[in-house]
Design a protein around this nucleic acid. Structure first.
Lengths: 242, 242
DNA sequence: TTATCTTAGCGTATTTTTTACGTTTAGTTT
DNA sequence: AAACTAAACGTAAAAAATACGCTAAGATAA
């Protein structure tokens, strides 16, 4: 079995990064080709799968190629299969030119990925890669705008039942960072004093004693999330609406 | 573009039905072939996609073929793509014999579906189809046991944030039915008196005045779920664990 | 040096929700 | 008529969520 591209199935990745203020997505400028009507048009990191990898492997490969990172939180959240998704024609032309793939149809399995950073500005990106605020996303190739939108919806939903917010924060974080993340992702303000009270009751969010340095206000203490303790102490969840 | 099967991608459906006591899955006996070592081995309803349908269409087609129903709750929840998923060899032999598909590899996009019934026993099934309790599922073809297991996990998770439980109940249901459903799906007992209190506060679960007939105890009132009212009154959800 | 600014962090009172559990009601069955 | 079953109503206590006042620790500006 050769290590060649499977022309029927691709994987696209929506990589989220939180810069302590807002949610960003990693976008890449598509490779330049001769006669490109929209040079530098942006797309999601993605690629057709090969015949020697399962889809998770493909996703990890794509992420490694674009971020250099290997152990990201990764989640497959949707499949895009509309018959006319290889549109507009200029995007299809680009695909054919750069991949040698000439099918009429290709389904895309979409993943989102969460990246533990303090600040997107610190993160070393490859040339042509950019962090883009989720409210400022330009027109992307194919149906990638729809993919990003669905990714945000799934991320928000999963935030409610799983402690994945911590996958977007550095290993040690402040209560304020955690609060801002919740506010951005769930779209509603939270009272800081009550939020602190709640957090301080949780056994799996552990104060580290260490503090911020060089901020022009009272330095905040760092905390870390203990996954093992979380799994031990998690309450069996009931329905949110009943 | 012909209406032929795409040999690279299939859709499998996990159809859930609640019989007012337990959760069941619709399984079908696979079509008999000559020299079948395991005649009547069970599988999920599924099929390769055709080149003229997107995946949702494929799933609806499969469900229509197996249940006669058209408007089910349907949700794509995972993709199965392991390189060795077309095992064991006897299952692969069966696939080749019945479909004429000879690929080494096929990915499967998995859906779960919820069906509004009062009692699985009342539901007219095709020959070879069976409702099987989720705790009594036999060995299935390929990786279908894994697909069922993941479907249950996704259903449970989605139950927490979306009001999909009602998709498993008839249009009019009793509080007890709703309670049993919650207990079965979330795996914990609920105090009936407190549950009733909670339900009676919800504006989108509406008492209908009508009552059960022919039961050997006080007949229960019927209720219905009002989706519009739910969408108006739903609280913006915060994290369950923070 | 002192006032000001900013965010961190503690506390208190009130309301709302959850939990635990006793009691009555309307049917059928014995 | 008594017993049985599940429905349905209620009350009290505990826990959680909410609203909001206030102090603390640093940097910066006057």
């Amino acid at each position: 079995m050769k290590n060649r591209l499977n022309p029927h199935i691709s994987v696209d990745c929506v990589v989220f990064g939180f810069d302590s203020r807002q949610l960003n997505v990693l976008l890449v400028e598509r490779e330049a080709i001769e006669g490109d009507e929209e040079p530098g048009k942006m797309k999601l990191p993605g690629s057709p799968i090969t015949d020697t990898e399962d889809l998770n492997h493909s996703a990890y490969r794509i992420l490694r190629e674009h971020t250099g990172l290997d152990r990201l939180y990764l989640r497959q959240f949707a499949v895009f299969s509309a018959l006319d998704r290889l549109r507009p024609a200029s995007d299809l032309y680009w695909l054919r030119k750069t991949s040698g793939i000439f099918v009429e149809r290709m389904i895309s399995v979409a993943y989102y990925s969460l990246i533990k950073i303090t600040d997107t500005a610190d993160f070393p990106l490859l040339k042509g890669s950019h962090w883009v605020n989720i409210d400022d996303i330009p027109q992307l190739t194919f149906d990638h705008n729809e993919i990003v939108q669905k990714a945000v919806e799934h991320l928000r939903q999963e935030m409610v039942t799983e402690p994945i917010g911590f996958e977007l924060l550095p290993m040690q974080f402040t209560i304020s960072q955690l609060q801002t993340l919740q506010e951005v992702l769930l779209g509603q303000p939270i009272d800081n004093r009550n939020f602190r009270k709640k957090i301080s009751k949780l056994k799996y969010i552990i104060p580290l004693g260490e503090r911020e340095k060089g901020v022009n206000h009272k330095p905040a203490q760092f905390y870390r999330f203990d996954k093992k303790l979380y799994n031990q102490n998690k309450r069996s969840i009931g329905s949110v609406y009943l």
